[in-house]
């Protein structure tokens, strides 16, 4: 049994997985860890891939028995690296092992293979989390005297470790303003020129309001149609766990509770009579058009 410690990145995993494959280390004999850098010493190994692989030229494969995997598997692996469980490393290595040494290339394409299915579920869960972060981040404007740009800060609690993969999206969309997204895992900042990352923080570090939120809630209240309440549908797309960081969520209960009364009020209203047509050239023009349509 060997414990290997890697940085939680795709490149670190791939590099380690390659060398383990070359050594014919069976997946059942490997424990993957991303916890700190002491564990290796504890077990008497010093194999940690500490160097940032980005700066190091890729090692050429030395052996010919290395399996080739299709691009979609690489993409899958790159995505599932963000999974919070950290179980992905071992699962990915299991697949690589089967493909390399057990002639089971087929499992890559087998949507009913258990490991592949679990990886696919991980991918789905991460993609959803990435998408929900793009949807539910709420920026709050702050006043900063040291620059003359607009400055915004958001607080978000992602399910997976997705801050970095989501950064390009926010950078492209909000390049013209300064912003920070704070999360418990890590924080990302954009100042108009550079992206930087800092350690995760506590919610108390984030601003607790924005003047615009009153207008936003006003909009949310008015765009809701009380005659078609479908709470389950709302919750399937906007689960309650997100509510605490959404400024509009605080009026949801009230909207639901008052919806019946509102609709009953409308239903009981008297029907309004027609009003005489106002004098308007354009309406006369429309009438002419309608008459000529009729005669067609």
């Amino acid at each position: 049994m060997r414990t290997v410690t890697i940085e939680p990145t795709f490149r670190a995993w791939r590099s380690k997985a390659r060398s383990l494959l070359d050594q014919k280390m069976h997946p059942n004999d490997v424990i993957w860890s991303t916890q700190g850098d002491d564990s290796d010493e504890l077990f008497g190994f010093s194999e940690t891939t500490k160097q940032t692989p980005e700066n190091k030229p890729e090692q050429k494969p030395q052996t010919s028995n290395r399996a080739k995997v299709p691009p979609f598997f690489i993409q899958l692996a790159q995505t599932v690296c963000c999974h919070r469980s950290q179980k992905q490393w071992s699962m990915l290595y299991h697949i690589l092992w089967s493909v390399t040494y057990e002639q089971e290339r087929e499992i890559l394409f087998d949507q009913t293979n258990d490991t592949m299915r679990k990886l696919e579920q991980m991918r789905k869960s991460i993609s959803r989390d990435i998408h929900k972060m793009r949807a539910f981040v709420r920026f709050r404007e702050i006043q900063v005297e040291t620059n003359d740009r607009e400055n915004y800060v958001a607080w978000f609690e992602p399910e997976h470790l997705i801050v970095r993969v989501n950064t390009p999206f926010f950078r492209k969309r909000f390049a013209g303003m300064n912003w920070s997204i704070l999360t418990p895992d890590e924080c990302v900042h954009w100042d108009g020129t550079d992206i930087s990352y800092t350690q995760g923080v506590d919610k108390s570090q984030a601003p607790d309001g924005d003047e615009l939120e009153e207008l936003w809630r006003g909009y949310y209240r008015s765009i809701f149609n009380p005659a078609r309440v479908k709470i389950k549908m709302m919750q399937s797309e906007m689960p309650k766990k997100y509510w605490k960081n959404l400024p509009e969520a605080e009026i949801i209960e009230d909207l639901i509770q008052t919806s019946t009364d509102k609709v009953n009020g409308m239903m009981e209203e008297e029907n309004r009579p027609l009003k005489p047509e106002p004098k308007n050239k354009y309406l006369d023009h429309l009438k002419q058009l309608n008459n000529s349509e009729d005669s067609k």
Binding site: H131, R134, A135, F136, F169, R171, K172, R173, F174, A175, G176, M177, G192, Y220, I223, F224, N225, P226, R228, V229, K230, I231, K232, M233, M234, E237, M238, L246, E248, I252, L255, I256, S259
Partner: peptide
Amino acid sequence: DSSSGKGVGSTGGAGICHSYTPDGRCI
């Protein structure tokens, strides 16, 4: 997108629903 630093915004790819009201419709 606005990666040039001019203005704000981006489109393309999947649409994003930023919120949902209790009628189950997205905003």
